[in-house]
Amino acid sequence: MSLNIVVLAKQVPDTRNVGKEAMTPQGTVNRAALPAIVNPEDLNALELALRLKDSHPGSVITIVTMGLPKAAEVLREGLYRGADRGILVTDRAMAGADSLATSYVLSQTIRKIGVPDFVICGRQAIDGDTAQVGPQVAEKLGLNQVTYVEQVDELKDNSIIVTRRIDGGVEKVKAPLPLLLTVTGSAAPCRPRNAKLLMKYKRALAPSEKPATGLPHAEEYEKKPYLTLTQWGVPEVEADLAQCGLAGSPTKVKSVQSVVFKTKESKHLGSSDAEIENLIVELLESHTIG
């Protein structure tokens, strides 16, 4: 049995290691200083897909990302690791999408590809930690969903058994295909880039990444069609404009506020023995500790 698998992956700013240099003097995060990475759990999702492909030779993995043209980097990272093709979904009309509008465009994209045996997502994206897009795509495609998947235990006769990691425990569930999975960070980490695939795809570009003139190695793109990544917009995925981007997003940001912590009357002390000793005595006497 060979499988058709779609992996959904997102480019996100690396919020995990927000160091001092990434903070502006006003105390907000300087997005430009944060490297753009593949959302970490989407790499776990890709690995799960690659393992299914390993055990089911002939399977085809399509990695899909919606975002700015530079998000094509996510597709290259997928191709370097064994995905068979990448699709960049990008369109100005898609800007400002909340999770509902995002899941609409992604579900239209998957319809266009043809609903596969598996749609595999990360559990959540670290830029917002919402974990909504996977279940919303499943609902829109009428697919069953299994979230928080850690590993595949068995796949046969069009049905799969997986282990899910839930609050305080694990669960094994059995589900028929086709199916949408969301994969948690405790699943197997993604394999490294494959050197051969890296050579093969390192010049792969989405059409909107190519400069208007003076594309380096232009002749290669004519000889090797796989170096031009598939790029779709609103017309190609046959999306209804009213459901895309800002227009299709029921949630609006009313306001953002910088938080100024209300300063308490605090006692300041250094780290000398006497100061720490006094502090402990004070805390004991006030029955704060002990």
Partner: peptide, 14 residues
């Protein structure tokens, strides 16, 4: 919200 010291107020008007 993403961005360290920021709190966002989200609404669904319609």
């Amino acid at each position: 919200a993403f961005g360290g010291n920021i709190v966002a107020t989200i609404i669904n008007p319609d």
